[in-house]
Structures are given as C-alpha cells and as structure tokens.
C-alpha cells in the first residue's frame, strides 16, 4: 500500500478506525463488514435500535470482544495485533463508562475514581489522589456525601455519575460513553451534556457516545452514526441524516420525541439570535 503524506496527515486525525468488522454470536450475526472513523476532537454519537449491537461495537473497539474479522485501530495502534505494552499505553489514554456503570462494589465511590490513577501513576501521593477524586466527583455533579459511599448505597443515576467520574479520572484523550444520560434526571442530563462539551473544548477530548437521548444528540454531537442492518448505514450531522430517506432514520428523528427535541433546539437558537439582535440594537 502506498501512502501520500497528505493521507498520513489525515490518518493522524483519526482516533478510531474500524474496517470490515464482523461480530457473531453463534448463529446471530451482529456486525458485518462494519466501517467507521472517529476524528480527533469530535463528539461522535452512535444511535441504533435496542439490540443492534452498539454496546458490542464499543466492546470490540476497546478489546473486550474479539471480533471474528476486521481491523480496529485506536490512536493508530492496531488493537487486534498489538502487544500488551502497546495496549496498556492506549488504555492510559482512554476512559470508559459501561452501560451498567460497572463500579467496583468493594470500593467507595472516591476509591473507584482513584483506581485508574493508582494503576497508571503509582507515584502520585495519597493526598493528591484523594483531592483529584474529590474534585472529579463534584465535577460530574455528585454531592460531596457520595464520596465515601459504596456503590450498593447509591441510586441508579448516582452510580452512572460515579462511573463517569471514574472514566474521567485520567483526563483521557478519548472517552467511551455507553448511554451516559440514561437514568439521569433531565437537569442532570443537561449538565452532563455541558460537561462533555466543556471538556472537549478545553482538553480536546474525543468522545464516542452511544445514546438514545435525542436531546444529547441534537445539542452536543458533531456527527452521528446510525447503526442498522449490521452496519453503520449513515454518518453525518443531524440535518444531513434528516435529508436521507432511510425509513428507520426518518422514524427515529421524525417521531414525536425527535420533533420535540428538534423544536427545542430551534427555539433555543432563535432565542439566542433574538438576544444578539436586541443587543446589537441597543448598541446601535
């Protein structure tokens, strides 16, 4: 294969590259020849009906599910053939929130957040670890009382937030989120959306975001990939997707909930424009 310098430059901007991915459970084919590219610094939404294989896709990218076939590169490292040391270096640069939060049940919330820090940076002092855990916990919107609690003592939404705090512990460059706002109250979900955008803007985070939350899709995702028929059938901004006439996409975004979210976004934009215009008028 010959590569032009320009092609390589483009490569460097692609954080996750998946080619020809095939996953199978016994007779059931979950993915077939699936392809996707996630660019640096973008918030990449993944949608699809329940059971279309979003979680399985994430698990294959992070190396928990060995695919039957395909190539997966993360940060340019071929995940399926890399050595354990290379994999460890990649793991240092990502943070993962599982669908079920997957907190360590014998550790408190704060200790959970400290686990990746301890694992990868054993030289950090005990005091700094505790401080980092503390501000991360507040940052994801947990109340300070949640710090010394065990996962079994938390509500579902709190568990999710604790999972996010653990995923963010290392200030990763790449964040995998499997339905982060499912189980959060609307205020919390909106705050979470803000947090993700904020972190992306400040730290140049790349986010791989699986979600069913239309508000999240509309407000924060730069591009959205639609998973259907064992493939990524379309990738693009929401207006681009809306222009396609794939029946599932139309139903998903044009259904009553989809329209409500769309209207809310339009309304917010209109209000922002009006405010700007008013300001301009006052000045002039």
């Amino acid at each position: 294969m010959t590569e032009t310098p320009a092609a390589r430059d483009e490569d460097r901007d692609i954080v996750i590259r998946v080619r020809g991915l095939t996953n199978r459970f016994g007779e059931q084919l979950v993915h077939e020849d699936l392809e996707l590219d996630v660019r640096r610094g973008e918030i990449y939404g993944v949608v699809g009906g329940s059971g279309t294989g979003k979680s399985v896709l994430m698990r294959s990218i992070i190396g928990l599910q060995r695919p039957e076939e395909g190539e997966i590169d993360v940060f340019g490292v071929p995940m399926l053939s890399a050595s354990e040391r290379e994999l460890q270096a990649v793991r240092k640069r990502w943070g993962i929130l599982f669908q079920g939060a997957a907190l360590f049940s014998t550790l408190t919330v704060a200790e959970n957040v400290e686990v990746p820090l301890r694992e990868f940076y054993p030289r950090l002092s005990e005091r700094l670890l505790d401080e980092i855990a503390a501000y991360k916990i507040v940052m994801v919107g947990l109340s300070p009382e949640a710090g010394p609690k065990y996962p079994a003592e938390l509500s579902g939404g709190m568990r999710k937030r604790a999972g996010i705090a653990r995923a963010l512990a290392l200030d990763p460059e790449l964040l995998f989120l499997d339905e982060p706002t499912a189980g959060l109250d609307p205020i919390g979900a909106a705050a979470f959306d803000n947090l993700v955008v904020e972190l992306r803007d400040r730290l140049g985070l790349t986010v791989f975001l699986i979600t069913h939350d239309l508000d999240t899709l509309y407000t924060i995702c730069d591009r959205v990939a639609v998973l259907a028929d064992r493939k990524v059938v379309a990738v693009g901004t929401i207006p681009e997707l809306l222009a396609l006439d794939h029946p599932w996409i139309q139903e998903y975004f044009r259904g009553p909930r989809g329209r409500a979210a769309e209207e809310a976004v339009e309304e917010a934009e209109a209000r922002a424009e009006a405010a700007e215009a008013a300001e301009g008028g006052a000045e002039g």
Binding site: T108, A110, E111, E114, D130, A133, A134, Y135, K136, I137, V138, M139, P144, G147, P148, E198, R202
Partner: peptide, 18 residues
Amino acid sequence: SLLRQVGEADKPIKVRPD
C-alpha cells in the same frame, strides 16, 4: 476556564467512611 472549573469543584469530600 479550566481553573474556574476545578475551582468550582473544590469541595471537601471524604474518600472513605471515618
């Protein structure tokens, strides 16, 4: 903005129960 963000998140938190 980062400094402001961590400043806002600066609250005393216990790591484990006393």
